[in-house]
Design a binder for these strands. Structure first.
Length: 780
DNA sequence: GAGCACTGC
């Protein structure tokens, strides 16, 4: 196991470079470059650790109606925290109402149990398994912040005479921004110090990207996992916190896996970095199976007089509140999912009473659109005594207005709403009014193939946990029914849970995060699931190429800068290259990177021919012959030059206005960081700046600069007119969404590489073949 | 000339 927080105890193995020319030694490991540049297609070796299925929860849990109506007007100062235990006293009748609601939550029964579990010295990890509606996210931090171990302490660090404050705040992490902010608002009301303008003091705060509200006296702070990971860069011992509550661990985001790894390192360390003040860790999961979590934390060293055998991880289970859902399987496998889906929906519609909307889970936009058409056709044929049908598609790429329909009650009487959704409705949003769920048993999943350096996005079988989650969607407002379009024995063949993200994603960013926090040997870093050695080696090599690691695998100053930037590492490398005098294009790089990292593609799909015609001309004004990267630049430049009606400007061109606003936020953040990191020397001019097109020579410079991050994502035109990738010589096609679709260029660089129906290059730019060699050879 | 789940710094 790795040593304390910074791994400082482990001397880096420094070897003389004696490897063959086609190999490189990183972090004491010799890695063959052949495997990197010329991958041989072998099946990827990835194993999952199965966990027991259980319904997963949704965040934020819906407040009870009474609670939702509550308007707390109290603005009392945070009270002194000398008392132990009990909740903040009710200050008026509204507070009394809130308290009553809180007391009715299932978690309330476990209040003293939770407090006692954490009071025990040496018992620093508690796992809470609580179902949806148990109230754990809102109540647990409130149970704990007045505990004596939660007081801020003044300590002296070993070897230092300076006094330092440690602890005093509880952090609670969430995978998503909305969850963190809405929970903070609710808990702040319950605590009697609601968040808001002109309220400098309060017990509860939150911190998410672009939005921080941390009042003076904050004792409970909600954060996204990513934000806490950034804090960990500046404060490896998390000194401001007495406890970290990790919520929604069952979702197993990449960030949460890294986070618990760092927490375990702090717990296993000698606490000298915290002046001896222990850190309490509370792990909360919505699934009943917590063996993996318990196993992960189990081997903490025994403290004080305790036996070696003592289990330091206490597990508490809390019942939730969910209505019963009857599950109906198909008696035998269905030959045609689409057909079975339609039949099932019609059957529900004819046999089940109103009110009760139907939520059907499908795999993608295409399936949803075709099902919608067929259901609407059917609806015209039903008798007049049969309820009418309103079909609402629901998927990520759908416009906000289109999505809204699915959440509103139907306006017409005697009508049933049928929502056809992707797994957007599984965790991200809750559709009200649903009593019947239809589950096709599949979902599209993105998976990284380290050997090929590309991703695949294919429909595959869901997990038991996912199926249960879908089932649960029928029981949120009353007893419901869930119809599965597969047999119960098929269900039994499902994996218990989905592959955690860390086994599905490129671990480039994760490895950089570890290296930036002083982890020498990333293979020894404690993780609940460890990615294959090949994935990690690939990431090390990639980081080495990007200039983030030395030949010995130590992080470089450039790598540290990349880790601080809130963008993927290859873009960080582009930023650093852009600051070099031969490129000198930081501002342009920021504009492009902001557009790309602001969400899904800012260019909305043009579906109908009329739309193509209508928007085509205006789109052509921003398109560049050099390809997508330069098109993003022009888009941002034209957008910021437009000062009157930016939303209208976006609408005319079918550009996602929300993402453009987000891109502006990112641009602002990257500009400020570039100034701080000295990538630029002076404050950039204010918007709006007049638009002047970038000349072709300058465009070449910008594209060459992007090659410093993406040299391995290039392809050459073959004699037969197809493109062959430099890495692996695979055929790749330019995606239809690219401005270069259908064009033949000498060579291309692409920022994304995804296999769907075939191998696609996305975000494509035309380059010169000799640039590839140039970029491959260049090292900083 | 094809079509893509979600999230985060």
């Amino acid at each position: 196991m790795a040593a304390s927080g910074s791994n400082a105890g482990q001397p880096a193995k420094r070897r003389k470079k004696q490897q063959p020319a086609n190999a490189i030694t990183i972090g004491g490991r010799t890695i063959s470059l052949e495997a990197y540049l010329d991958p041989t297609p072998k099946p990827a070796k990835i194993t999952a650790t199965p966990a027991e299925p259980a319904p997963a929860a949704q965040k934020p849990e819906d407040p009870a109606p009474t609670e939702r109506r509550e308007k707390t007007t109290t603005t009392s100062r945070p009270e002194k925290h000398g008392r132990r235990g009990g909740p903040a006293p009710a200050r008026n009748t509204e507070d009394a109402g809130l308290l009553k609601t809180r007391r009715a939550l299932p978690i309330w029964q476990h209040r003293s149990e939770i407090q006692a579990a954490l009071r025990k010295p040496g018992n620093n990890v508690v796992v809470l398994a609580g179902e949806t509606g148990s109230g754990k996210s809102t109540q647990v931090p409130q149970f704990l912040y007045q505990e004596s171990w939660c007081r801020r302490q003044t300590v002296k660090l070993p070897g230092s005479r300076d006094e330092l404050a440690v602890g005093g705040t509880i952090a609670i992490t969430q995978p998503r921004r909305v969850a963190a902010t809405t929970l903070a608002h609710r808990v702040s009301r319950e605590a009697g110090t609601p968040l808001g303008r002109g309220k400098p003091d309060g017990l509860v705060g939150y911190s998410v990207r672009f939005d921080h509200q941390v009042p003076r006296g904050t004792k409970i702070k909600f954060l996204t996992e990513g934000t806490l990971l950034q804090e960990l860069l500046r404060d490896p011992y998390l000194r401001q916190y007495s406890a970290i509550i990790v919520d929604e661990i069952h979702e197993r985001s990449l960030d949460v896996d890294l986070l618990v790894g760092f927490l375990k390192q702090i717990l296993t360390g000698d606490l000298s970095g915290r002046g001896g003040v222990p850190l309490k860790v509370i792990i909360m999961s919505a699934t009943a199976d917590v063996d993996a979590i318990r196993g992960f934390f189990k081997d903490l060293p025994a403290k004080d007089n305790e036996d070696e055998d003592t289990d330091h991880v206490q597990v508490l289970r809390i019942k939730g509140r969910q209505y019963p859902v009857e599950v109906v399987h198909e008696p035998r496998p269905v030959p045609d999912i689409q057909d079975a889906l339609l039949k099932r929906i019609f059957k529900i519609h004819l046999e089940e009473p109103l009110p009760g909307d139907i939520l059907a889970f499908l795999t993608g936009q295409e399936e949803i659109e075709s099902a919608q058409k067929l259901i609407e056709e059917y609806a015209t044929t039903t008798a007049s005594n049969v309820p009418k049908i309103k079909v609402c598609p629901l998927y990520g790429q759908l416009s906000t207005a289109g999505q809204r329909e699915a959440f509103l009650p139907v306006k017409t009487a005697f009508t049933r709403k049928i929502v056809l959704a992707t797994n957007i409705a599984e965790t991200s949003v809750t559709v009200p009014g649903v009593r019947y769920v239809v589950d096709c048993g599949k979902a599209k999943v993105k998976k990284y193939r380290p050997r090929l350096g590309m991703e695949s996005l294919l429909a595959s079988v869901i997990s038991k946990s996912s199926a249960l989650q879908r089932t649960g969607r029928a029981g949120r407002e009353g007893p419901g029914k869930c119809f599965r379009l597969y047999t119960d024995s098929t269900f039994e063949t499902f994996q218990d849970s989905d592959l955690p993200e860390i086994l599905r994603n490129d671990v480039l960013g994760a490895v950089l995060t570890m290296k930036a926090r002083g982890i020498q040997d990333v293979l020894a870093f404690p993780l609940m699931d460890t990615p294959g050695t090949e994935s990690i080696e690939k990431a090390l090599l990639h980081l080495h190429y990007l200039g983030a690691l030395t030949d010995d695998g130590a992080i470089t100053p450039a790598g540290e800068t990349m880790a601080r930037f809130p963008i993927p590492a290859p873009f960080g490398a582009v930023m650093l290259a852009a600051a070099r005098p031969e490129f000198d294009c930081v501002m342009e790089a920021i504009d492009i990177i902001s557009c790309i990292t602001s969400g899904e593609d800012i260019f909305l799909q043009l579906q109908s021919e009329e739309a193509q015609e209508e928007v085509g001309e205006l789109r052509r004004e921003i398109q560049r012959r050099e390809g997508d990267v330069m098109t993003y630049l022009t888009t941002m430049q034209r957008y910021t030059a437009e000062n009157a009606d930016r939303v209208g400007w976006c609408r005319q061109r079918r550009i996602n206005a929300r993402n453009m606003r987000q891109a502006l936020n990112i641009r602002k953040q990257l500009r400020a960081m570039s100034l701080k990191e000295k990538l630029i020397s002076e404050t950039p001019p204010q918007d709006p700046q007049p638009f002047t097109p970038v000349d072709p020579e300058r465009a070449d410079v910008i594209l060459k600069c992007f090659m410093r991050g993406f040299a391995m994502k290039t392809a050459m035109l073959a004699p037969d007119g197809s493109y062959a990738t430099i890495q692996g010589k695979h055929a790749v096609a330019i995606h239809p969404a690219s401005v270069l679709h259908g064009q033949k260029k000498e060579a291309i660089m692409f920022l994304e590489h995804v296999f769907t129906n075939k191998n696609y290059a996305k975000k494509v730019s035309a380059i010169r073949a000799n640039w590839i060699v140039e970029a491959m050879e260049s090292r900083y």
